[in-house]
Design a protein around this nucleic acid. Structure first.
Lengths: 208, 208
DNA sequence: ACCTGAACACCGTTCAAGT
DNA sequence: ACCTGAACACCGTTCAAGT
């Protein structure tokens, strides 16, 4: 060893131990630029200079790889959300910041967000993925609870109110990714959504 | 011809003219029970007793088939939405009814809804799909406009307010499909979402 | 026009065998 | 433990040829 060589160029020395990490890294790049359908285990193995059967040691399935990518996506999203939720400022600006962080994530990694929520549809077991998704909702619920203490949000189960808030922001991200927002600047659409949402959360339940 | 035989059993007489329709019908069934990844052109052809190259006459691509399915999905969704939007009752109950119709569609055809919004991410041209998605938003905008005339909804561009309303309902459907609503009954979550939404839409913009 | 059959280049998955 | 190489059963897509 001649020094603290952490990661020179991606020469040829994967193989021992970091194949799993290398697969995930390369897979994330391919997903971002070719979508999930462009992601092939064999091509991945080829890119990494490894036999086409090698990935199966680290991921039983193609699905397992996809799920791992989605899990990493939720982890990163939750990191950003909790950072935004812990930022200085009042609860209203924190909630706005979290919404912005969510939409930013969606715009930066559209295919990944799609995978995160598409994967769940075909899931059943005690999935690690579902747990990570719940963590997102828990972060939102914590913000809602803060808002309730300040009288900014109506009384009621913070988890249920958080489901509504999450729906609005996630739905808007979906519209944006689907080019369904047209000429509306995403920032403006988001500001309006947050405004409507905050007013709706404040008002006491009664109308319906 | 011995009588008004509309659709006997699906015997063997596709072939002439209705192969396209037969492919779409079978594809919709496979999509519903196996997801998009379980949909293979060759298997479809096999199911219909036709050569594996035959589908290419009617759908240039696998994508073209998927897009056609998504388009049919939007058409059906829009049919249901406009029916709900034209139902008797006041604007508030019509808006609630449209939201319910949306979520019902999502629950009945989860894979199709996923396809409808996933397909758009990878789209670019003057897609017929995007136009059908816009129609959904236009239906929502019409309802918002009705609400404005009755003083139920704040002033402002109805299309932009409709984007917010659509986001909330679509987002909630996504959460439900992803098993992220947990033990919350979907009906209750939807009622709460509509309540928050209506209060938010009514309140004049000011807070942000 | 509409479909067939063969061909091509790719897949995911499995499994004995190597080191 | 970790990886290889061959094998199997499937793909999507194309294209000459049939009727």
């Amino acid at each position: 060893m001649r020094g603290p060589v952490v990661a020179d160029t991606a020469d040829t020395t994967y193989h021992h131990g970091n194949l799993r990490a290398a697969l995930l890294e390369r897979a994330a790049a391919v997903l971002a630029e070719s979508g999930p359908d462009g992601l092939s285990l064999r091509a991945l193995a080829r890119d990494l200079g490894v036999s086409h059967a090698a990935p199966s040691r680290h991921f039983r399935d193609r699905r397992a790889l996809l799920d791992a990518l989605a899990a990493d996506g939720f982890t990163e999203l939750n990191r950003r959300l909790s950072e935004a939720a812990g930022a200085p400022g009042d609860t209203e600006s924190r909630l706005t910041g979290a919404a912005r962080a969510y939409v930013r994530f969606a715009v930066e990694r559209p295919a990944l967000l799609g995978l995160m929520f598409a994967a769940k549809t075909e899931q059943d077991p005690t999935s690690c993925l579902r747990e990570l998704g719940h963590e997102s909702l828990r972060l939102a619920a914590a913000l809602v609870e803060q808002g309730q203490r300040e009288g900014l949000v109506r009384p009621g189960d913070p988890h249920r109110l958080a489901q509504v808030a999450f729906s609005t922001v996630h739905g808007l991200a979906t519209l944006a990714l689907g080019s369904l927002l047209d000429d509306t600047p995403l920032d403006e659409a988001l500001d309006l959504a947050v405004d409507v949402l905050l007013h709706g959360l404040r008002a006491p339940a009664a109308s319906v």
